[in-house]
Nucleic acid binder design. Structure first.
Lengths: 176, 176
DNA sequence: CTCCTATACATCGCTTCCGAGGTATCTCGC
DNA sequence: GCGAGATACCTCGGAAGCGATGTATAGGAG
């Protein structure tokens, strides 16, 4: 999630760590902002991996800023993260939202559609939450009211997401 | 998530690790089943913390099973995990679903309603995804079609969840 | 008779995340 | 002029997850 967010924001232009932290917080609904002890080591990791470079910009404000810029390798890594087959199984809402937000960095609508297609396929597959093997599960299958409720909310959320996915894919691939 | 799932399942009776793994996989839609290298160390941790005990059951099947049982401290920990104020900020769908599935282990409907109330309050608060400070955000606020789409799906999912929360809470607290 | 799969548990190293704590400077209110 | 809060970065230790790998046995297919 974090790596994707950092690379995604930097793809739009240079930013310093503190700014990055605020943007990520805004994008993920200010739910548990990224801790300093998470963000700065992550930046170092990405720098060590050659995915971004740093240029010190002194004097402007309180503390000297380290302006971060994506390298070619960084851009390639972003593309890879946005195109990963694993994106169908993302269960962290924030992770999925961050991916959606940066899908625009993929170069064509076919590439952009691929993660959405995989997600769609996953949600309509017997390997998912809503099946016991090949048998589709229903809320009525459960006696316990909480298990029943869980099934209801899971189904409703899934239906909402499916409707959105189908609509978005229709816009993205008008021909198919 | 994992700790909650283990304690939750064991609260219904003794299970061995391998069974636990299958049950957790079924509950979370078989999305990336818990790895052995995650589950067994977790069981050891909980055992070391005095939250569960193990009894070896030999001979019955291929390998000897370690039947796990909750202790009093384990039951108390489960109650604590189900009642935590942090549950409003859970962004992992599986984590939230596991919590819902085991809410029945709380002893009264007031306690069961509390996490749902907190979730409801969070989703309707300016600290959440849908606000920029106090200003509510709308899909139309964004130019980029993906940012727009992200706002649309986030809003739709949230609305779906809110409707379910309100309905469930009405069943749980008929008086309020 | 042999191979494959399922059952059942374990350890190792790697990576990541988090909280706590530390260091500085600038600005604004009082 | 003094403290609070924002800006801006850092390091450290601990906890937790994951993939790889290892070790058994049982049962069924070929």
């Amino acid at each position: 999630m974090l790596e994707l967010a950092i690379l995604g924001f930097l793809c739009d232009g240079s930013l310093h760590g503190y700014d990055l932290r605020k943007r990520i917080a805004a994008l993920t609904g200010h739910v548990r902002p990224i801790a300093d002890g998470t963000l700065y080591p992550a930046i170092k990791r990405l720098e060590a991996a050659g995915l971004l470079t740093r240029r010190l910009e002194a004097g402007s404000v309180a503390a000297p800023r380290h302006m971060l810029s994506l390298t070619g390798a960084g851009r390639a890594r972003l593309t890879a993260l946005l195109s990963e087959p694993a994106d169908a199984f993302i269960t962290d809402e924030n992770h999925w939202f961050v991916l959606l937000a940066f899908l625009r960095h993929l170069d064509d609508s076919a590439a952009q559609a691929r993660p959405l297609r995989r997600r769609l396929a996953f949600l309509t597959t017997p390997a998912s939450f809503f099946y016991d093997g090949d048998r589709p599960l229903r809320a009525a299958d459960f006696d316990d009211p909480f298990r029943k409720g869980l099934m209801t909310i899971a189904t409703a959320t899934s239906r909402t997401e499916l409707a959105w996915l189908r609509e978005t894919l229709a816009d993205l691939e008008p021909d198919s």
